[in-house]
Design a binder for these strands. Structure first.
Lengths: 341, 341
DNA sequence: GCACCCTGTGTGAGCGCTCACAGAAGGTAG
DNA sequence: CTACCTTCTGTGAGCGCTCACACAGGGTGC
């Protein structure tokens, strides 16, 4: 089946068997229009007979381009990045690209730089940075200028397009929902210090609270983990017993906070209403089912590929400043209720 | 800084600048022992000056090997696969390998075959199959014979080494824990039908229950989702009110089940004890904190790379039948309690 | 008749690297 | 002195593909 004694067949083998030149084989492979139907059939038959597989490494070398999108991600264990990555990969494949993911264990500039180096060495034709931290912004700025890049949830580095979920609007919706329920003492548990999303959610909460003329309290610290939400719940109970509603920057923390309140004998939503953010798969099955802000990560992944493909095709540098914004949506479940008089 | 007018520097440029041959540059790059220290320094200086980056595509073509490990995964959104992948990637990098992940949206044989094709086309030097479904076993069997492969949580295909978490033992520990608490009516909510892990956990439960001489009920159906756990909780309440303990095949379902029981006025662990599996990050902060079986996915990822590196280095085919087993560990929290008399 | 296009095919030269080999310089052994 | 090993360096030929180009044959226009 394979002429060169065991070694996989290459283009030259196919060409010989089909009685054409290697270039014609290449044309068939690349759907070049100027190939006679008869010739194409012969080549295809030869390929099938030899079990030929195109060597993408050689192709990438010759073309000096690999049809691969590089992705730099921070913690792919988290719900958001994992979901985005998942849909991004499918979308990229549909668009004819491979995806090469590099995870960076710690958000240090040096580690990011190494990741970029590794991707460049692989001749990726574009880089998606899926690292929603401040530190990532610097990296974007340090990217080779001729390498198409897209930031996801990242800060807008000059010259780099971005795809973001409308965090601010999500936070506004969440907080307004609490205000509409009559709450006047609304606390916030924020996300990790160095995360851009944490700031956007904080801002949304602050804007809504300010607009309603309510007290803007110092936000409680959090690091996205359930444990930090639990700690925040404890702190909340101790410091501000008058608070009747909390907007928590993600669902994991919300769940920890609810647990802390429950231990203190405070009922959610009876005594305190809680809104989360992310709409993790379990949100609807927690006790109580969590009112939260849904983020369409699948859409983020898809849009990301759209933008990247556009960037790769474009010849001029990207100059427009508008990020692609994916809307977020408040999902009202049972962790929020009208304020108790 | 770059001599060839804008184009990135290549090995020949470095060689010229350093006044040596391209081969000497290659030797420096590959840490060949026979290079004079002085020469090495000259080459290194030239590289730094030109901002040289080695082209891995060309290297892969010449070596006919890419130092890349391919991974075929099913749903990287799930906790287990995501965690495994994360640590696998770090471990692979530490061992000098790149990782190329291909996700397969549906567990169809054809899709798996395509994934393998894509990885082979990339000249990966090994494939890790991270698809714990039955369907994956067939794929393993269909892999090119000379391509090193490692199965994770997969069925043992002949000739393919595997790394698994000790699911059976975890299930045994969980069920015995319930038995030791005095429970005699112990139900099980199983995982997805086509998943190997679901069967292993089911077996563990069945063995423990049988060994204790207790009733082996028909396991309740589940698909890993919180929703299916909720449904199972409803069914449990309706069908078997006498049940006082449930071993649920994962934490998401456990949480859904607890919610269903709570709605029916059944207290966990007061009336019914519940044990989950996975030990997701939130497990300790649910209401009640979930007793569950911890799986060390990070270790799985690491061991996976170990085995793969060994396979790649080995010349003969792998014949031993013993999988690498990563132990699991029961974490007792507050969702289990002695049976109520 | 020549010029020109469109279609279909082949030729050769790379892409940037590694491999196998050759060879030079110096040391030690017989 | 020749032989031979060790250390260090250079030469040339690929790896399997695509690119730029050449060219053959046929149709159309004038």
């Amino acid at each position: 089946m394979e002429p060169r004694s065991g070694r996989p067949a290459v283009m030259a083998d196919v060409a010989t068997l089909a009685g054409v030149s290697h270039q014609t084989v290449s044309r068939v492979l690349n759907d070049h229009p100027y190939v006679r139907e008869e010739t194409r059939a012969k080549v295809l038959a030869a390929m099938a007979e030899l079990g030929y597989r195109r060597n993408l490494t050689a192709r990438a070398l010759a073309r000096r381009q690999s049809d691969t999108i590089g992705v730099i991600a921070f913690d792919t264990t988290l719900h958001g990045p994992a979901s985005t990555l998942f849909s991004l990969e499918q979308a990229a494949r549909a668009a004819g690209f491979e995806v090469h993911v590099v995870t960076v264990p710690d958000p240090e500039p040096q580690a990011f730089a190494d990741a970029v180096d590794r991707l460049v060495a692989q001749s990726v034709c574009g880089v998606v940075v899926l690292a929603p931290q401040r530190a990532a912004v610097q990296v974007m700025a340090g990217l080779p200028v001729d390498l198409p890049a897209v930031a996801v949830e990242g800060g807008a580095a000059p010259g780099v397009p971005s795809v973001v979920v409308d965090q601010l609007d999500g936070a506004l919706q969440a907080t307004r929902h609490l205000i509409e329920l009559g709450h006047t003492e609304i606390a916030h548990v924020r996300g990790r210090e160095d995360w851009i999303e944490a700031d956007a959610r904080l801002d949304g909460w602050r804007q809504a609270v300010t607009a309603a003329g309510l007290t803007v309290r110092e936000p409680l610290a959090g690091d996205w983990s359930a444990r930090s939400g639990y700690d925040a719940g404890l702190a909340l109970h101790a410091q501000w017993p008058e608070v009747t509603a909390v907007f928590v920057a993600n669902d994991q923390m919300a769940l920890g906070l609810i647990r802390a309140l429950a231990e203190a004998g405070i009922d959610v939503p009876g005594d305190v209403s809680v809104v989360g953010f992310d709409d993790i798969a379990e949100a609807g099955y927690l006790r109580p089912p969590l009112t939260t802000v849904h983020q369409d990560f699948a859409e983020v992944g898809r849009r990301c590929v759209d933008v990247m493909v556009e960037r790769i095709a474009a010849t001029e540098r990207w100059t427009r400043g508008q990020p692609v914004v994916v809307p977020s949506r408040l999902v009202v479940r049972a962790s929020t209720a009208p304020v108790r008089r």
